[in-house]
Design a protein around this nucleic acid. Structure first.
Lengths: 336, 336
DNA sequence: TTGAAAGCGCTAACAC
DNA sequence: GTGTTAGCGCTTTCAA
């Protein structure tokens, strides 16, 4: 079994007697060719099992029809859903997708962006690693590669389609306060910008209910994983004035906290209400007694893809950057 | 803000007074250049903010340093983990990754493979969509693009690194039989080849324990999602001789079944033992009372990436295809 | 030690 | 309607 020579435009040209140019036009369905020649060429190309070399085409066109996606961590179900939706939408639109994970490290985010630039992707979708260090992302956009953020980065001036975290947190807080909770702990992963907004949303609900500021206590979980949610719980419950409700900045943190409660004889949601962020689609069959804010990752992904593709089509028009925030829904899980 | 001209090799050449060729060599750290010139060139390139056009390089080299990954469904936690691990390993090795989902459709799998071929990826990792329809995958390999399967496809003759499903199922079955279960239902998603092996493994355990064949009843869940696991349960429990243990061919199916049991007053694992497939890393903090077979997606991914890269380096050597099966571990969840 | 020239496979501008 | 020519940005002989 040999390396096998791939059929090239030239081969099809020779086989049909037409020039490379004509073949190229035929394959791309140019209207200025008579049907007869086009059909002939297509048939021969088919027979020779020809398919275009996308790399060569990209070089000639100065466009790869490829979009890069940089996520922090694909194991986060929200981002998994985002990745899936983005891939689907891009495929539908005839685009390819390159994927890279930053693992919430600004350094690897930087490397991923550089790699994508080098690969000449037509555009980049970024779920950013850090809420204040984003100069390198801005630099990519300024260098001419369209960039779209999937989480808000205040002051970046970059195109954005994201969840309105403040509104979401406000909703959860209202819900919890409505249930009579008077001491709410927030488990803050401590990474993304959204957490500021989440705090702000909770505080707003508290103020609005006329309750004291210290109704909210914030704990830094130093991470967003279940493990870290589990580990921070002793500190949370060491407070003599223990909270009766928890708002976790990620769903994984909430799961860890839930496990800790289970192991320590605290019934959920009986003695402790736990709220996190999630996606309807992901959690439809969850059996966990968590209240969640629907992160709507699929929605922002769909809109985000549409936006960046739209920008590519109007590349020269240089549309101004725009921020679009989606207000999340609350899902109160029926299980107890 | 203008489209901004990117710095090219030619620009660096002009700026330094050297030829494009010399610059190219310097940037790739050729030893046959004196340090002085190399340093000068590197400095100027840095100043001009030069970075190579990977597309042009790929065309010249006839190699893209890009690997394609085709998964059925990235929402499956096992495959999410696989995607993450594969991305990590590839990045480490200086490769880029393109990603596509087949959604368990042979047609879109075919399209994804074609796209990848067109994009000239150096190799393709496939988690196949169907256990019998794989001619199109073989065709890709025969056309000269190295292909590696992440699930066994009997008779394909393709390079494979996968989980030994039969061994895994055998282990679960032994475990359940050891607990005294005498009626085991298998929830079969009905898609992948592995399911035959899973059935075979369970039967082997049953035979070995000297129990009658009908200890195992197979139910087709017509899908692998939680929803489908939930929906198939009434049929499973309609049997007058109800099973006391369930082996689900995917973890999501198990979750759906678990939910059904919860809603129908059947305690798990008290009145019903449920086993599924999963990954240690994914389920470390799960609170669900499931027994799982560790699918070790990260392990097969790591090995798989190493294998395909190794093949790329020895492209001309044409190493023979090889199948490597990893025996999975059993994880009996402590929670009740 | 460095440079000139050709070529990777395709597209595009302009002839004919 | 179709062919010719040049060129995308880089690498790679082969000379000097």
């Amino acid at each position: 079994m040999k390396p096998k020579p791939k059929t090239k435009l030239k081969d099809v040209a020779k086989a049909t007697g037409f020039s490379e140019n004509t073949v190229s036009l035929a394959l791309r369905g140019s209207p200025r060719l008579p049907e007869s020649t086009r059909d002939l060429i297509l048939r021969v190309a088919e027979e020779l099992n020809y398919f275009p070399n996308h790399i060569a085409r990209s070089l000639a066109n100065n466009a790869t029809r490829t979009i890069g996606l940089v996520l922090t961590d694909i194991m986060n179900p929200t981002l998994t859903l985002a990745a899936r939706t983005i891939e689907r939408e891009l495929t539908k639109a005839g685009y390819g997708m390159m994927f890279a994970a930053s693992d919430t490290s600004v350094e690897s985010e930087k490397r991923a962006l550089l790699r994508f630039q080098s690969y000449q992707v037509d555009g980049i979708l970024v779920y950013p690693a850090h809420h204040r260090k984003f100069d390198h992302i801005v630099a990519v956009a300024e260098a001419g590669t369209p960039v779209l953020l999937l989480a808000e980065l205040r002051g970046s001036g970059l195109d954005t389609v994201a969840i309105d975290d403040m509104a979401g947190a406000y909703k959860v807080a209202c819900h919890l306060l409505g249930l009579g909770h008077r001491r709410i702990a927030m488990l803050d992963g401590g990474f993304m910008s959204g957490n500021d907004d989440k705090r702000r949303g909770i505080r707003q609900a508290i103020r609005q209910a006329g309750l004291p500021t210290d109704t909210l206590i914030v704990h830094n979980a130093k991470g967003t994983s279940a493990t870290q949610g589990y580990r921070v719980m002793p500190a949370v419950m060491a407070d003599p004035n223990k909270p009766t409700a928890l708002v976790a900045s990620t769903d994984a943190l909430a799961t860890g906290a839930l496990r800790w409660c289970g192991e320590n004889g605290i019934s959920v949601p009986g003695q402790m209400a736990i709220a996190g962020y999630d996606n309807t689609e992901v959690s439809e069959f969850s059996v966990l007694p968590l209240t969640t804010v629907n992160y709507a990752a699929d929605e922002i992904s769909r809109i985000g893809v549409a936006r960046i593709l739209h920008r590519l089509e109007n590349k020269e028009a240089r549309l101004p950057a725009e921020t679009q925030l989606i207000e999340p829904e609350l899902i109160v899980r029926a299980t107890t």
